[in-house]
Design a protein around this nucleic acid. Structure first.
Length: 578
RNA sequence: CGGAGCGUAGCUCAGCUUGGUAGAGCGCUGCGUUCGGGACGCAGAGGUCGAAAGUUCAAAUCUUUUCGCUCCGACCA
């Protein structure tokens, strides 16, 4: 295509609000423009990138026997009520009331629709398995859109849903999706890691995320140095500590006056202790239950782990009144000893259970207690109490004896085994070989198309702009004729342009009547992998210049070899992404 | 939803403290000179200063309200 005909509004300056590199570069290169918070227009070049990514995703999905369908963006709210997800999604779910007074949800995902479809159309095990997908815009009214297109309200997601008759078949499809995802991300030129994530209904190894390691990522990845273990911090398993010897000679608990010391820091300062010696006691409201969680003073409660320990539900810190009722004291003085019967469940982190003795709130305003021995002064098991890992991993923790390291990543894909949650609620059942009615066993698999583009840029750029993988760059080759008014230059440029196009190459011709510097700067900014410069200087020697975006200097190539060289180099670039 | 900040030309921003004729750079239009890494000169177009109300002889500037945006936090199948 001709540059002069395309809307490519490159800019030198970028709003202060664009903080991360991919956001800044996408604006500078004229890929996107913001319309409102979390909503963007994709200009021709940005859309080209997305389309190339979508093609790759589509090819690999089809190759994995998934079938493309297209489901509505506007969905009847009653379906969302049936599955209870209207409540579960809360305010993130966008919706509107139509002229007939019916409520409609703006699709943030499509389990309800696809499961209803299968409920209506599938009745026999002979019709299974099925793996249905779509690539479509999604809407989520995010509390806080940020980082450009990394967390936007509207985004394009490839979402697929598999329906199996048996658990074994679910495992097979899950594995085939996992393999397909690896191929797609590789083809998109992304370096990624697969990490364990919050499990689906079935549990076990039921959920994995595909992360692009990157400092700007929102997720924290926990992994061992050799990569044998990697997980989202929400999920990361931590080795339990060695149990301290039960010390029957330990001094008895001693109450101490700690006026107004309600935080770990304040108590430590007052008593000269360290956070490691403290037992942090937090009162949570989880669903209908009041749950007390205990972690060591230097640890943080992981609310996802806590939710799992409590058997699900919305996790919230309890209101002041409940805390007062439970502990019999002002907020900040709760402790393990002498909690009221109001508590439904007590979850103790293994690292608390292993403490020789600790300092905790006294359940009495302005008092703490020292010399509390877990197991002696409060129960570690019983009707309500149990010891479960409920904290976030921190520096120094290990998994299977190997030290855990931390890094950040962008979640570009997420696969998981759903089980029968939706199929049961929406009646997606089938008759098996024995004539028994059974619910379909589901899996679901998502990919953020826009995030692939943003993370590709985030992963590869320099001072001059994007360095895009050839598979997703807006064009594969850019031709820059420097002295366009000279017949020999523009003529040769046209010839090379036509020949490359005939060879199936996606070429951009910078036919603008501009100065060379402007063209060079723009070409670099756009991140197009190969550049051909045709100028009088080179032509005198019978050469044109060919340069990879990653090369420091161009290479002189005889005019007659220009097309073949470009094709050859292009082939090499593509080969690297197989 | 809590905390902080910002809304002035197409874009990036100054001006506001101390009220008094609307500014710069980039971009854009025309002409000329340039032409291998974001050229230069001259001439020009372009703004109800987010909106509303108030104080004042006079408001971009002070007060109040409101809308939008951004950052930190909470939240995130």
């Amino acid at each position: 295509m001709k540059y002069s005909k395309l809307l490519i509004p490159t800019v030198k300056e970028v709003p202060a609000e664009a903080e991360i590199t991919s956001h800044r570069l996408m604006i500078r290169a004229g890929f996107i423009r913001k319309v409102a918070s979390g909503t963007y227009t994709y200009l021709p070049l940005g859309l080209r990138c997305l389309q190339k990514i979508m093609s790759i995703v589509r090819e690999e999905m089809n190759a994995a026997d998934a079938q493309e369908i297209d489901m509505p963006f506007v969905q009847p709210m009653e379906l969302w009520e049936k599955t209870g997800r209207r409540e579960a999604y809360g305010e993130t779910l966008g919706w509107f009331t139509d002229r007939h007074g019916r409520e409609n949800a703006l699709s943030p995902t499509a389990e309800e629709i696809v499961t209803s479809l299968v409920a209506a159309e599938v009745s026999s095990y002979k019709q299974l398995p099925l793996n249905l997908y779509q690539i479509k815009m999604k809407y989520r009214d995010e509390f806080r859109p940020r980082f450009g297109v990394l967390r936007s309200r509207e985004f394009i997601m490839k979402d697929s849903y598999s329906f199996s008759a048996t658990l074994e078949n679910l495992d097979e499809i899950y594995q085939s999706m996992r393999d397909a995802y690896c191929k797609m991300f590789k083809r998109c030129g992304l370096k990624f890691v697969v990490v364990q994530a919050q499990s689906g209904e079935i549990g076990g190894s039921g959920s994995e995320e595909f992360m692009v390691p990157c400092a700007a990522g929102e997720d924290i990845i926990v992994h061992t140095e050799d990569g044998s273990y990697a997980a989202n911090i929400e999920k990361a398993q931590i080795d339990a500590p060695a149990k301290a010897e039960a010390n029957s000679d330990a001094p008895a608990p001693e109450q101490i006056n700690t006026p107004n010391a309600t935080t770990i820091d304040e108590v430590c300062q007052l008593l000269g202790t360290t956070p490691q010696e403290m037992i942090k006691t937090l009162v949570y409201q989880i669903g209908e239950k009041v749950v007390v969680a205990m972690v060591r003073g230097d640890h943080d409660v992981n609310e996802d782990k806590l939710r799992a320990a409590a058997g699900g539900g919305t996790v919230e810190l309890a209101e002041e009144a409940i805390v007062q009722e439970v502990s019999g004291a002002a907020v900040g003085f709760a402790g393990p000893v002498g909690l009221t019967v109001k508590v439904d469940q007590i979850v103790i982190d293994p690292w608390v259970a292993a403490m020789e003795s600790g300092v905790a709130g006294a359940n009495k305003t302005d008092y703490h207690v020292r010399n509390i021995v877990p197991g002696r002064d409060f129960a570690l098991d019983g009707e309500k109490a149990s010891v479960v890992d409920i904290r976030n991993a921190i520096e120094g923790d290990t998994n299977n004896g190997k030290p855990l390291q931390f890094s950040r990543g962008i979640e570009v894909g997420h696969i998981f085994k759903l089980g029968t949650k939706y199929s049961e609620k929406l009646g997606a059942t089938f008759l098996d070989e024995n004539g028994e009615t059974k619910p379909c066993i589901m899996g679901c698999y998502g990919i953020g198309i826009n995030r692939i583009l943003a993370s590709a840029i985030e992963a590869s750029y320099d001072d001059n702009g994007c360095i895009l993988p050839v598979s997703i760059a807006p064009f594969e080759v850019e031709i820059i004729p420097l002295n366009n008014d000279k017949e020999e230059v523009s003529g040769l440029a046209d010839t090379i342009y036509t020949k490359l196009q005939e060879s199936g190459v996606d070429v951009l011709m910078d036919d603008r009547d501009g100065r060379p510097g402007v063209k060079f700067k723009d070409a670099d900014l756009l991140g197009i992998p190969l550049r051909v410069v045709i100028g009088e200087r080179g032509l005198k020697e019978g050469n044109v210049e060919v340069k990879r975006r990653t090369d420091d200097k161009p290479t002189n190539i005889p005019v007659d070899d220009a097309v073949s060289t470009v094709l050859e180099w292009l082939g090499e670039l593509k080969q690297n992404l197989q």
